[in-house]
Computed example of a mutant assay.
Amino acid sequence: MLVTDKDRDILARTLWGEARGESLAGRVAVAWTIRNRVNDGKDKSWWGEGYAGVCQKPYQFSCWNRNDPNYASLSGAKQIPFRELAQARIAADQVIDGNVPDPTGGATHYYAPAVMKAPTWTKGAKQTVKIGGHVFFKDVP
């Protein structure tokens, strides 16, 4: 699959919006969840196409919701601090380029228990791992 500069930028911005308070390992885990969706094989109308399509698919990653406080920075209306975006870009590039293994065990979903209670989709899903402030799942019904 061809990965564009836009894909890399949108993935990095998504990592900033979803996992900027995490360690590199936590950002990599979130990036792998996105990569697993990109490579899932489901109809592209489900997840979206490519990294940018998956990240910006409505209601998939809350940081891209227009009412999310991160949206102004992600959309470019407000600048993301250089160092924070650079850290997100490192994780994004490592995952896109295949330089780090998937620490999530094939997860396609996650949530942050400190931010929200367990979503309904966790029922019947297989929890794979907890990394930093996120809990990861696969086989989500």
Score class of each variant (00 low, 15 high):
residue 6 K to M: 14
residue 94 Q to F: 05
residue 14 T to F: 14
residue 126 K to E: 12
residue 16 W to V: 07
residue 70 N to H: 07
residue 37 R to H: 04
residue 101 P to L: 03
residue 91 A to G: 15
residue 61 F to K: 08
residue 126 K to A: 08
residue 43 D to T: 01
residue 118 A to I: 06
residue 102 D to A: 08
residue 59 Y to S: 13
residue 138 K to F: 00
residue 19 A to K: 09
residue 60 Q to E: 11
residue 2 L to Q: 14
residue 39 N to L: 11
residue 5 D to R: 15
residue 49 E to C: 02
residue 111 Y to L: 07
residue 73 S to P: 02
residue 1 M to W: 15
residue 104 T to E: 00
residue 38 V to I: 03
residue 80 I to C: 01
residue 54 V to I: 02
residue 122 T to C: 04
residue 4 T to Y: 11
residue 93 D to E: 09
residue 90 I to M: 15
residue 115 V to F: 13
residue 21 G to H: 07
residue 11 L to A: 03
residue 108 T to G: 00
residue 103 P to S: 07
residue 112 A to I: 05
residue 31 A to G: 05
residue 52 A to S: 14
residue 102 D to I: 02
residue 124 G to F: 12
residue 66 R to I: 07
residue 48 G to T: 04
residue 4 T to L: 13
residue 11 L to F: 07
residue 53 G to V: 04
residue 104 T to W: 00
residue 87 Q to E: 04
residue 46 W to D: 13
residue 87 Q to P: 06
residue 105 G to I: 07
residue 101 P to G: 02
residue 28 V to Y: 03
residue 8 R to V: 13
residue 93 D to Y: 10
residue 5 D to C: 10
residue 40 D to Y: 04
residue 82 F to N: 12
residue 30 V to T: 09
residue 103 P to W: 01
residue 26 G to P: 04
residue 96 I to P: 02
residue 91 A to H: 10
residue 26 G to L: 08
residue 41 G to Q: 00
residue 10 I to Q: 10
residue 86 A to L: 08
residue 40 D to F: 00
residue 55 C to V: 12
residue 122 T to S: 03
residue 94 Q to N: 12
residue 51 Y to C: 11
residue 121 W to R: 07
residue 74 L to C: 14
residue 136 F to C: 05
residue 7 D to R: 09
residue 103 P to F: 02
residue 12 A to E: 06
residue 18 E to N: 07
residue 113 P to L: 02
residue 84 E to M: 01
residue 114 A to V: 06
residue 103 P to G: 00
residue 14 T to H: 15
residue 119 P to G: 04
residue 65 N to G: 11
residue 1 M to T: 13
residue 37 R to I: 04
residue 18 E to S: 11
residue 5 D to P: 08
residue 98 G to F: 06
residue 137 F to H: 01
residue 63 C to F: 08
residue 1 M to F: 13
residue 7 D to T: 10
residue 92 A to T: 12
residue 124 G to E: 05
residue 21 G to E: 01
residue 46 W to C: 13
residue 92 A to L: 11
residue 41 G to K: 00
residue 3 V to F: 12
residue 116 M to A: 14
residue 15 L to W: 04
residue 130 K to Q: 10
residue 135 V to Y: 04
residue 116 M to P: 05
residue 69 P to V: 03
residue 10 I to M: 06
residue 30 V to G: 11
